[in-house]
Design a protein around this nucleic acid. Structure first.
Length: 467
RNA sequence: GACCCCGUCGUCUAGCCUGGCCCAGGACGCGACCCUUUCAAGGUCGAGAUCGCGGGUUCGAAUCCCGCCGGGGUCACCA
């Protein structure tokens, strides 16, 4: 029986969920789901200084919003590193006893000095190994790295990567104060959680040989590794706040759909022929880490926006309306109809906006009468002649029982013929009156959705504004 | 600086393993046109890559080999 695939996503709660982290979380999730395996969520909170409870909550929330569910992890206990200290202690003791680790009492100041000196000489700093054979019983615990040989990381994405042991040094497993270091915790956790595939950011590739040596010292099987490329800013350096929004929630708040973000992230470093849009099911079925590209990818918000629009367009009104509602409220607007009404409104707006936020802004007139008219258009349309046309429209429209888009269009066409003008002339005038703008969804749909009373009121108000 | 990774249109990518179908395909963005009551959406067409550079192997290289250059990442008693 083949061993079950077990992957993990291990964020450190020092901030919100970064899109780069979401990217590797997604690849882990896809890999787990594709293989019918398990995704384990582990919180790496050994940095007490920067880890906060709020950040943990925020990360879980972001993952949930993205629809990346985990099979093991919080809120169950035992998935935070701070809860697993005994485990690290046990393993440290084992390494010490087996002679694979030793205590080091070199004062930090001395190490710093040596580091600076090495830097002066333009050399790589490596711990001298001064305490290797002193048989000390206190201090920081270091892993003994073989002097000779090399360790090869057989990366699923990057292929075999060789690191000479001469490049590595006896790294610290446990600090003088007894707390375990990150690299040590990762090894112990991945082993005890029976992780079969470590899929993580490319920035960890250099740490991998150190970790492999630790697995071997512990006499544990080494998992498979896959180092995913990082997400870059326009200047091709790692995407950071300096480049703009980086957190998943920032994109949520800007009005992106989780499916769109997930689809976008999936296409960063991964592809399947010429296909751009993938349902979750398709992604799960088609995804394979071995096909992930090793080059970094620049985050392109414009393409994300396009994808978001594709997703909004594909969604039916009522479903989209549920996503839109909070944005209406947040804009300080009231919804003058029921959910079905909002669904129809949203149907007229979804192909005119890239984000939910933009959609609300574009359709603002559905929720409140225009506070003003576009100056240039007002200049052109709200003239004496425009007033006469508005009068004609109001007269024809008042008291009309059939307030549907089709009926309204018939009235407008009839009026345009009678007045000897093009439909467009009349439509633009009415559009300005009703929306305050020269661009909007189809006028007759807008009128129908606004209702007779509101539409007529707006036409009259525009009439009053003519010169 | 050392080590490691990466290098195809502005961007995301296909092709590279198993050389010829590639004087390089798709998508975003950009331009034009069509459709049209406006704006979008949609459709069609187009501009855009000497495949980082230089050698070599070969009848033939984006694809194989070597060197170089450029970018990024890692070098903590941070994670």
């Amino acid at each position: 029986m083949p061993t079950e695939v077990r992957v993990r996503f291990a964020p450190s709660p020092t901030g919100h969920l970064h899109v780069g982290s979401a990217h590797t979380a997604l690849f882990n999730w896809l890999y787990a789901r594709h293989h019918g395996g398990a995704l384990i969520l582990r919180i790496e909170d050994t940095d007490a200084e920067r880890s906060t409870e709020e950040n943990i909550g925020s990360i879980l929330e972001a993952l949930t919003w993205l629809g990346l569910d985990w099979d093991e992890g919080p809120p169950s206990p035992g998935y935070r590193q701070t809860e697993r200290l005994d485990l690290y202690r046990e393993h440290a003791a084992r390494l010490l006893k087996a002679g694979h680790a030793y205590y080091c009492e070199c004062p930090p100041e001395q190490l710093d000095a040596a580091r600076r000196a090495a830097e002066e000489r333009k050399e790589t700093f490596r711990y001298s190994g001064r305490c290797r054979d002193r048989g000390l019983s206190t201090g920081a615990l270091r892993l003994r790295i073989p002097d000779q040989g090399a360790t090869v990381v057989n990366d699923l994405i990057n292929g075999p990567v060789t690191f000479e042991h001469g490049q590595l040094d006896d790294w610290i497993l446990v600090r003088t104060d007894g707390t375990p270091t990150y690299n040590f915790c990762v090894v112990v956790d991945d082993v005890t959680m029976r992780i079969t595939h470590v899929i993580r950011g490319n920035d960890h590739l250099s740490n991998t040989p150190k970790q492999i040596l630790c697995y071997e010292a512990l006499d544990y099987p080494v998992p498979e590794f896959a180092h995913v490329s990082m997400i870059l800013g326009p200047d091709r350096s790692r995407l950071s706040k300096r480049h703009g929004a980086t957190s998943v929630q920032a994109y949520r708040d800007d009005g992106f759909l989780p499916d769109a973000l997930v689809n976008y992230l999936a296409r960063l470093g991964w592809s399947h022929g010429d296909q751009e849009i993938f349902s979750r099911g398709e992604m799960i079925e088609l995804f394979d880490v071995k096909e992930v590209a090793s080059a970094g990818a620049v985050f392109d918000r414009t393409k994300l926006e396009w994808l978001n629009q594709q997703y909004m367009k594909a969604m039916d009104g009522p479903a989209l309306a549920a996503h839109v509602e909070p944005f209406v409220t947040r804009a300080g607007l009231r919804i003058p109809g029921d959910h079905a009404w909002l669904g129809r409104v949203v149907d007229t707006l979804k192909e005119r906006a890239k984000t939910l936020m933009e959609l609300v802004e574009t359709g603002r007139f559905y929720f409140e009468a225009p506070a003003s008219y576009e100056p240039k258009a007002a200049q052109k349309f709200l003239t004496a002649e425009g007033g006469q046309r508005l009068d004609a429209l109001v007269e024809r429209l008042t008291g009309r029982p059939d307030w549907t888009a089709a009926a309204l269009e018939a009235v407008f066409r009839g009026r345009a013929d009678a007045l000897g003008v093009k439909l467009g002339d009349l439509a633009q005038l009415a559009r300005l009156a009703v929306t305050g703008r020269t661009a909007s969804p189809p006028l007759f749909d807008v009128l129908a959705l606004l209702g007779r009373d509101e539409s007529l009121a707006r036409l009259r108000r525009a009439r009053a504004a003519t010169r």
